[in-house]
Design a protein around this nucleic acid. Structure first.
Lengths: 202, 202, 202, 202
DNA sequence: GATGAATGAGTGTTCATTCAT
DNA sequence: TATGAATGAACACTCATTCAT
């Protein structure tokens, strides 16, 4: 993940746009004037740094995903055992609740945002790269679990990684559809997720 | 799921739109004239049956989801044991590969389409209804598994249903990101899914 | 000059634009909204018939030139001797006084409008075609003069045609710069032109 | 022709702009940034010397015309008989072939540039002044012809000057529409012009 | 003085919606 | 009932002009 270097203005534009999206704006209905206003700059300035609106939005999404992933990885790094790392992942998902732009929402959804925002498909950074990166991190966490003896399975790596995907997906689904599961508290859901993962991996 | 009764024209419009979306068109870039052309009717006719473009698209999505779910349920009904029913679910997912409009893609993705297509949120049919419906069907399948003795767990219903969600999500992810898992064949992935589910539920 | 067939709407648009140009509007500063207003139609309608503003303007210029030339030719046809035909040409020029769009102004000016309105260069109709057409008509008129015995020269065809060009240019210059020649009346200028032509051709 | 005194910067700006126009740029599509780049200065600097883009372009055109006329007059001065002076005029026209900004193209075209570039109409220097100046020079040349006995006519001054205009226009037309007259060489066209002038003036 | 980053008014073009036929 | 020609509001993008440095 060789970071692109962005100028201050570019970052200001990204942040303006990201704040709009976090407020719930749909990327398809965002206007250039909205972005300019959110970034506190003139409309024309945007075109000094980007060629089209699509380019701004795509690059902002990539920028935000990159940052979110870096942050998530840093937080996971700070935990030193399998269980804590897993719960940290669930915490991160919980905190991103309702954030349309959230990396996890985008990446893990069955048909990712790229299906809806075609421009991203052509972008230099392919979404696939991010998933591969995440899978590698999942592998690391799993290895730690094996080292610790928490995981003890003869299933292959694909199985193991997919088990984590499944559990993350279920928890994301729970968070996103809380209305349907009002009798289940967040902590209970997390415990359920962890328990399920251990069962699948042992 | 008390079905709305639609006129022939309305259904023709829906089918035109759905065919566009199955061809990969993004709901945000579909034009009314495209829909009219795909439905083989005049542009004005659409407005005899619907008030806005958004209404057409939303209702078409709901219509398609309803049909897909009905179809899926019928197919699952035709299988008479837990294992076959589960594999039928995976087959259905596989067949819907790459279909942006696929109910499963929409419903099971962490942040569903409703996050991207706001109109659906206000629509009479709430997406939540569909998920509840699916959860009930999952419950039925699980009960059969318990009856058959394939499943034998003390975990609660939430756990059990979420285990199915997790497995479905993982398989959907696999299907949608095939490029990343070229060394894993579809049958192997299905077997992995089934094995994982049984482990989680026993 | 195989005429393009234009729809009524297209002609209305052309006429709106031509009226603007005859009022003195500069093709470079005409706005699409001006054209729409002048043609008494909505802005969008223009785009149902043309792809770009440039296309509208170029085609309108060609359309107007074609009509003006046809008209001029018809008027000249109606005169039956060399002298009257020549004076008719001068009359036509006089009547077009101050009309920026006038075919004669455009065609006979040293660096024609095509130098200023590049789009015309690519247009299907090349301006050159019009000049060739006019030269052929000049040839016809000259032949009549020879038949009549008014012209009796051993100079070649190029010389003869250029003599007419020179005289037309001088008269156009006079009409366009009347301020500089206030002591010369229009009739006197016409007589001067005719006298000069006869001298050059005898 | 009391010359305006321009600062070095102003002249640099003029020259930048003139070079653009000589390269074929259309005055209506030239951008301030283009001018700045062509003049090798910052965009803001232009506004230290001129108030608007229109002013820059108009003044540059006037500046260029003034210089071209001065040059032309100097060259004509250096020839000492009627015939040579006339051929020098034709040479000058030939050399300016294809130069949209050429004074002669602008001045002698029936509907001059001022019809297309309205700003010039208001400019301090009226284009008319230039034509009057040129007419005076034509008068001088004609007088020399009379002195030499090459010209011997009873036609009035208007006739005589217009004869020169006509011949210059025809030759300019020839140069600008070379494609139409491929069988006529430049020298032949010049000889034709001179012969025609003498016939008209004798 | 000189610059060029920043601005936002202005304009070409699109497309959902209307309505006369 | 069905149509598609007509509309104009809306928006992406441009570029002359300004002004802080």
């Amino acid at each position: 993940m060789k970071d692109k270097i962005f100028s201050e203005k570019e970052i200001a534009i990204f942040n303006g746009l990201i704040s709009l999206m976090k407020k719930g704006a749909n990327p398809y209905s965002i206007k250039v004037s909205d972005i300019a206003e959110a970034a506190n700059i003139g409309k024309g300035t945007i075109y000094d740094y980007f060629d089209t609106k699509e380019e701004v939005i795509s690059k902002a999404i990539i920028y935000n995903m990159t940052n979110e992933i870096k942050n998530a990885f840093r937080r996971i790094e700070n935990k030193d055992n399998f269980r804590d790392k897993l719960y940290e992942v669930l915490d991160i998902i919980e905190e991103n609740l309702g954030n349309k732009l959230s990396t996890l929402n985008i990446l893990l959804s069955a048909g990712g945002i790229e299906k809806f925002y075609e421009y991203l498909l052509d972008s230099e950074y392919n979404i696939t790269e991010f998933i591969a990166l995440i899978n590698r991190k999942i592998r690391d966490i799993l290895n730690l679990g094996i080292e610790e003896g928490v995981i003890n399975t003869e299933e292959n790596s694909f199985y193991q990684i997919m088990a984590v995907h499944g559990v993350i997906s279920f928890f994301s689904h729970y968070i996103n559809q809380r209305d349907l599961y009002l009798d289940i508290g967040v902590e209970e859901a997390k415990d359920t997720a962890y328990r399920m993962l251990l069962k699948a991996l042992n």
